[in-house]
Amino acid sequence: MTYYLRKLGFYVVALWAALTLNFFLPRWMPGDPVDLMIAKLAAKGPVSPEIRHSLELLLGTDSSRPIFLQYVDYLNNVAHGDLGVSVTYFPQTVSTTLADTLPWTIALMGIATIISFAIGILLGQLAGWKRGSWLDNLIPVTTMFQAVPYFWLALVLLYLLSSVAQIFPTGGGYDVNTVVPGFNLPFLRSAVYYGTLPALTIVLSSIAGWMLGMRNMMVSTLSEDYIVTAEAKGLTRRRIMTTYAARNAVLPSLAGFAITLGFVVSGSIITEQVFSYPGIGMTLMSAVQNSDYALMQGVFLVITISVLGANLLVDLLYAVIDPRTRARA
């Protein structure tokens, strides 16, 4: 039990450190969001100093307060889920914007990453088990997909499958004309249909790493003494492959999977740009383009939490599947 508490404690400290950096970094950067908004408003009419002050209050950049108090306010606000107001989507709050876009990204990137990992590990396991089979010839093909720049692969597939063959839609998260977002079957079906092509490109471009890594680990695991023991024990081929070989070979890949899961949120920027997908990557892009500090901070916070969360998850999972990492209290 102390093991889990210690782990949890570590993650709380890491989160605090990330939040602190998240607070100070934008304040060290040049440019002021209030000036930017005032410039926008000034295009429409005169701006009084009162408006300026109220904007400062609204955006939480009240420069008259000492920075330490601002920091305390910030931590307090984050704890209450109040991340300020977005300039880009004014007057929507950052929390609402994130809540609208995050599920899209997590669903698309999360599912695609898991599928890629699962297929890659399975193929790698079989390729390592039966060395020299046709599966070995598949590896260079998948490596090629990983080697070409991702945006190029995505654009080519988009052109071929959406523009030429017209099997998939050219962009978006769902059919905005016919279905209503919510928990209903037509919407879900539409979302899956729109998400298939982006997911396919992600799987194609990332599967080689999993497959190659797993195959090579499998090959070196197969020369371990416990594999010969398992064979001499007269266990079935299937059992030797899964419980004895793959179970040990998958451990390094699983650590890699944790890191990848953490970057699900931040890694979606290009995908979402190419497919005009309404996720958090698009949001981050427009936040950067509009110097929307509050929104950027919000996105960075989400990225930080997702990296930490994914690592915590795999830490716990690792303890289950590799007994050697479990410290006995």
Binding site: D225, Y226, A232, K233, T243, L251, R324
Partner: peptide
């Protein structure tokens, strides 16, 4: 049945 040379590594470490 057999008892192997590398008994240190003859057991599967994860089960």
């Amino acid at each position: 049945s057999m008892v192997f040379q590398g008994a240190m590594n003859s057991l599967n470490p994860v089960i």
